[in-house]
Design a protein around this nucleic acid. Sequence first.
RNA 1: CGGGAUGUAGCGCAAUUUGGUAGCGCACCUGUUUUGGGUACAGGGGGUUGCAGGUUCAAAUCCUGUCAUCCCGACCA
Length: 590
Amino acid sequence: MPTRLSNLFLRTLREDPAEAEVASHKLLLRAGYIRRAAPGVYTWLPLGLLVKAKIEKVVREEMANAGAQEVFFPALLPREPFEATNRWTEYGDNLFRLQDRKKADYLLAPTHEEMFTLLVKDLYSSYKDLPVCLYQIQNKYRDEARPRAGLLRGREFVMKDAYSFDLTDEGLAKAYQAQRDAYERIFTRLGVEYVIVKADAGAMGGSASEEFLSPSEIGEDTFVRSPGGYAANVEAVKTVAPAEVAIEGQPAATAVATPGATTIQALVDQANTNFAKPAGSWTGAHTLKTMVLALTSPEGKRELVAVAIPGDREVDTKRAEAAFGPNEVEPANESDFAKHPGLVKGYVGPVSLVNGVATQHLGKDSATGIRFLVDPRVVNGSNWITGANAEDQHIINVVAGRDFVADGFADIAEVRAGDPAPDGSGPLELARGIEIGHVFQLGRKYAEALDLRVLDENGKLQVVTMGSYGIGVTRMIAVLAEANHDEKGLIWPEAVSPVDVYIVAAGKDDSVFEAAEKLAAEFEAAGKTVMLDDRPKVSPGVKFGDAELIGVPNIVIVGKGLEQGEVDLWNRSTGERRSVAVNLAVSELK
RNA sequence: CGGGAUGUAGCGCAAUUUGGUAGCGCACCUGUUUUGGGUACAGGGGGUUGCAGGUUCAAAUCCUGUCAUCCCGACCA
């Protein structure tokens, strides 16, 4: 039976809802796919469910192809397993928590690593049982501080999450590749543009992690790509170090007066006025600014670290957090400075001049004892203007490797368009993207925490190694709507369209409705799913408008052409409209 | 959590400045009309103006408090 507009639970809206800002959100509401139930929580209407089911179908088929088996966990979980991995605490405010009548703690699952791990532990205990890969398509709950843009970032959302279990690292690599391949097939079939970027493994300690991003203006993630095909999350970009420079022959470090130059701009201005100029003029890139950061470990221990980066760049918060994780990173505050009199705010630098001789000021073996890290661009022989650790003073000709030695590198400066790609594939371009998938070699972290071990061939217990693989199913709907619409409405790719064919009965004669009904039956006999606008007493203009809004790409108009035995085929994606004989309509749309 | 804005009918908005008991468009219902691009006309239903308190003869409007939502930022395995 076709889906009939005359009784479909649907009300399309003529105006954009005030609550929606981005196109996908506006159109999904206006066309009657979803309704907002609470911030970041949506009700699925019949049309929305059809699209969701289409996406899930593709995901299930490709998971089966990749050898993964479907299971289904509760969304409501007890606290206990999350204690074992410490995530009851670590997840913080993002976790929806609740209690039962006995005041026992429960949560709405934000993710299911623990449950999958425990399930395998529950049932399997031998290497012969491995490898195994399980997945589910489930609602996830995260109490996001700020839900956004409808389905793009919700507090309840549907995710396909898969987990692989292997005895060996090679096995994990293979499972990872199988999922990665499946993801490529899924996104290709769904007709969604994507790039695979290297992601930062960070605090999770995994060995490999890649994100699937769909390029989009409204994306929340910034990534970089090069003409040669390099792509990465900004957190994962490794700065290319320039070649080392000869130290011999460089002038000695010299103090210069820089009254009031507490910012790089002021310093550069003074340098250009008062100092002998290098080739060209002084720029921020000639200066080295030393940022003092406070790291707080998960145990609450606070440590100061000084990081020197070229003066023309800012610290990228995300890169800093990735580099210093699991510590929290923030700029040192007044009381931090107060505790370290050696740090002169605005004039911090790696060296001080003691009787005219450059003496290391920062670093574990120095007077201050503060750990000192430098940007990878600070190679041996590079020459900088730095703070002199004294009010209104800087030092010029401070040479790395001669005047100071860093304790290590910290690659936390911002990445800019035009920076070289780490693999030499050309200048980087910055772009925005929406994360639609993430594949991750978790390793043994969860298996160790939850004691998932199996007996190997020698009868010895071995910790299992895991991978986790996620696809945002409902987010995908937003991504597809965002990428496939015009000013009139949605234009779904065929793979996710709520139905295959949308038939409009445009006319008032019974013959029009009868012909439309007959055509709908013929399409269904040919294996197509059909939506039929059989609303009586609704003008053609309204029907055409709704057809465009709803966005089924293949539209058949039954109306005034009927007298000549013709119907119109209308392709929403190309805009093409042409008349064909009624009896050829089905075969024309094959 | 910081900054900004907004809460009036199912949706989009007006009336708030200057207090006088709520209005327009869409949607919905009835009738006539129209039928290949959101027809036209007539009639109709629907609102404790987010909530609580206060001022006043009188509060959507003024005052206090509170809740909620949206946007920007922070945050986001």
